[in-house]
Amino acid sequence: MLLLIKNSRVHKNKRARKRRCGVLPVLDTRTWMYDFLKACKEQHLKNPYFIQCDVLCSSLKNLFPDISVEELHYHLLTIGLFEPSEWKAIEQTVYRMEKSSMWELVSQEYERLKRKWNGPEIPIIIFPIRNAHLTRNKNTVLKNGAAFKEAIFLFLSPDLQKEEIMALLAHEYNHVCRLAYLGKDEKQLSLKEALIIEGFGEFAVKELYGEKWLAPWINFYSFDETVEIWKKKFIPSLNIVGKEKYDVFLYGKNNRHLPKWIGYHIGFQIVDSFHSLYGPFKDGGLYTKTADEVIAGSTFRYES
């Protein structure tokens, strides 16, 4: 098991306070969406953008006291929240998500993962993803997730299979567990720590549900392609700190000669190769290894 709870008494007290305040791990955001729809109908002269901000994000203010509701709203829209202009389709979208028991599935799987990894309790917020009401095609983005120290966000489509939802949750909750173990948030991470966090998150998917449910970026590049980029671009930058500095390495950027999703790809390959060489590990022991230990024991070495 991952020993992530350093002070069980403190965390138990926090959990008790959360429950007294009515904060459950998986928030019932269905009622928020219906309130948003009702407000759009009743306030037809008001821009749905501001209604969405008021109805959905004001409810989250207590979880994110350090940023404004407007900032939170803007950020959620950039990472997958449905567009305010989609309000007429929300009732049908939420109905289809309810019919698939998505909130119940996430709640059950979250409890299983929390026990398995001895992880912290954290609110989980489910919203429809952008364009969830449109006909599915090969370019449709069906899901996205984001993990913060305050909460996990899951942006979902009604068309998802249950394994896709569980894999997304496991990836994001593994991030939360790793950050809790390190005692850091993402702003304090170095590039090498960010790579290993992403690698751990996706390897957890492989370990729990099998290779079928892994993200497509794990197979984007060959080892020969990747190791050259690793030597030239990543090794000299592994100790840079701060999300604004390391994100370009995770997502890739043409003018830096970094292909799309390259950091995610490398992170998974590092962890996967380390596990192949030294695993299996009992009771989640893999996830307590340091970034230096995993990199040094993988097929991606520090040597240039």
Rank of each mutant, 00 (worst) to 15 (best):
G267D: 07
A194S: 15
N62R: 15
H265Q: 13
P236I: 11
S273M: 15
N137G: 02
D35R: 06
E293I: 01
V94K: 01
V23G: 02
F200W: 15
V10T: 14
K14H: 12
K212S: 10
E244C: 05
F64Q: 04
E303Q: 13
N7Q: 11
I229G: 05
A167S: 08
Y264G: 05
D159H: 05
K162E: 13
H11A: 13
P48N: 00
H11E: 15
F50S: 01
Y49R: 11
E70D: 11
C40W: 00
M33V: 09
E83K: 15
R301F: 07
I79T: 07
V241H: 00
R20D: 10
R112H: 12
L37T: 05
I165C: 09
A89C: 01
F220D: 06
H175I: 15
E70Q: 10
I67S: 10
S190W: 02
Y302C: 08
I218H: 10
C53P: 04
N47F: 03
L37W: 06
S276F: 10
I229H: 13
V271T: 14
E303H: 13
V23I: 14
Y302S: 13
V271M: 12
F155S: 03
N255Q: 12
G201T: 12
N239T: 02
K232H: 15
K206F: 09
E86K: 00
Y221G: 11
V94Y: 00
S100R: 15
K233N: 14
D292S: 03
K99S: 14
G183R: 00
V141W: 03
S59R: 15
D28T: 11
N255W: 05
G297H: 00
P123T: 11
T93K: 02
V94H: 00
E228V: 09
Q43N: 07
W87S: 00
I240M: 02
R112Q: 13
L286C: 09
P84M: 01
E163R: 14
E303A: 14
V69C: 07
D185S: 03
S101W: 09
P158T: 07
T93R: 04
M166C: 08
I122N: 10
L160T: 09
F127G: 07
S58Y: 10
Y181I: 13
V141H: 08
Q92S: 05
S298T: 14
Y278H: 09
E293Y: 00
W103L: 03
I5T: 09
W32N: 13
A170I: 05
L3I: 05
S276M: 09
